[in-house]
Simulated scan of single mutants.
Amino acid sequence: MTIHAGAPMPENLRHFMRATQHPARAVPCPHCAAPAHRPCQLRKTGRQLPHPHPQRVSAWAQTTACCPECQVTPEVPCHEDGRALHTVHQRRQQEAEATAA
């Protein structure tokens, strides 16, 4: 007996099925190493979390939005006094959330 995987799901259906997820799931989590489109998890127990780690939200905002505070384009880390920040400015995160909504 042969098992068929079936046809791949069309992207427009996949988008609507993921609509209830946080948009930050589109990028891998730098904290727990969860792959894109998978939930974050605790590193010790592996328990899945209902919300993404703040580091993942920051990485997502960096890839999707320009920062109105330090005037950098997507993919460029936020900076303060010439030094790159580990997270993004709050205004950049708000800009990314507004764009995703």
Score class of each variant (00 low, 15 high):
Thr2Val: 12
Thr2Ala: 09
His4Asp: 10
His4Lys: 08
Ala5Glu: 09
Ala5Lys: 10
Ala7Asn: 11
Ala7Trp: 08
Met9Phe: 05
Pro10Thr: 09
Pro10Ala: 05
Asn12Leu: 03
Leu13Asn: 00
Arg14Gln: 04
His15Ala: 10
His15Asp: 12
Phe16Tyr: 12
Met17Cys: 02
Met17Gln: 04
Ala19Phe: 15
Ala19Glu: 09
Gln21Phe: 03
Gln21Ser: 10
Gln21Ile: 00
Gln21Gly: 08
Pro23Arg: 12
Ala24Ile: 15
Arg25Thr: 01
Ala26Leu: 05
Ala26Ile: 00
Cys29Leu: 07
Cys29His: 05
Pro30Thr: 08
His31Gln: 15
Cys32Tyr: 08
Cys32Ile: 07
Cys32Ser: 06
Ala33Pro: 02
Ala34Pro: 05
Ala34Phe: 11
Ala36Leu: 06
Ala36Trp: 01
His37Gln: 11
His37Lys: 12
His37Phe: 14
Arg38Phe: 08
Pro39Trp: 05
Pro39His: 07
Cys40Met: 02
Cys40Thr: 00
Leu42Pro: 01
Arg43Ile: 01
Lys44Gly: 07
Lys44Ile: 01
Lys44Trp: 14
Thr45Glu: 12
Gly46His: 01
Gly46Thr: 00
Gly46Ala: 02
Gly46Val: 01
Gly46Lys: 01
Arg47Thr: 00
Arg47Trp: 02
Arg47Ile: 00
Arg47Pro: 00
Gln48Asn: 03
Leu49Phe: 02
Leu49Ser: 02
Pro50Ser: 14
Pro50Glu: 15
Pro50Met: 09
His51Arg: 13
His51Asn: 04
Pro52Asp: 03
His53Asp: 01
His53Phe: 01
His53Trp: 02
Pro54Trp: 11
Pro54Asn: 12
Arg56Met: 05
Val57Arg: 06
Ser58Gly: 09
Ser58Leu: 05
Ala59Lys: 13
Ala61Lys: 14
Ala61Ile: 11
Ala61Pro: 13
Thr63Ala: 14
Ala65Phe: 10
Ala65Leu: 13
Ala65Asp: 08
Cys66Pro: 11
Cys66Ile: 07
Cys66Asn: 11
Cys67Gln: 10
Pro68Gly: 07
Pro68Phe: 00
Pro68Lys: 05
Glu69Val: 14
Glu69Lys: 11
Glu69Gly: 04
Gln71Ser: 10
Gln71Lys: 09
Val72Cys: 14
Pro74Arg: 06
Pro74Lys: 11
Val76Asn: 03
Val76Tyr: 05
Pro77Gly: 10
Cys78Tyr: 06
His79Ile: 00
His79Lys: 09
Gly82Val: 02
Gly82Thr: 01
Arg83Met: 02
Arg83Asn: 07
Ala84Asp: 13
Ala84Asn: 11
Ala84Tyr: 13
His86Ser: 05
His86Met: 06
Thr87Leu: 09
Val88Gly: 03
Val88Asp: 13
Val88Gln: 10
His89Leu: 03
His89Met: 02
His89Gly: 06
Gln90Glu: 11
Gln90Leu: 08
Gln93Tyr: 15
Gln93Leu: 15
Gln93Ile: 10
Gln94Phe: 09
Glu95Tyr: 07
Ala96Pro: 10
Ala96Asn: 12
Glu97Ile: 15
Ala98Trp: 11
Ala98Cys: 14
Thr99Tyr: 15
Ala100Asn: 14
Ala101Tyr: 03
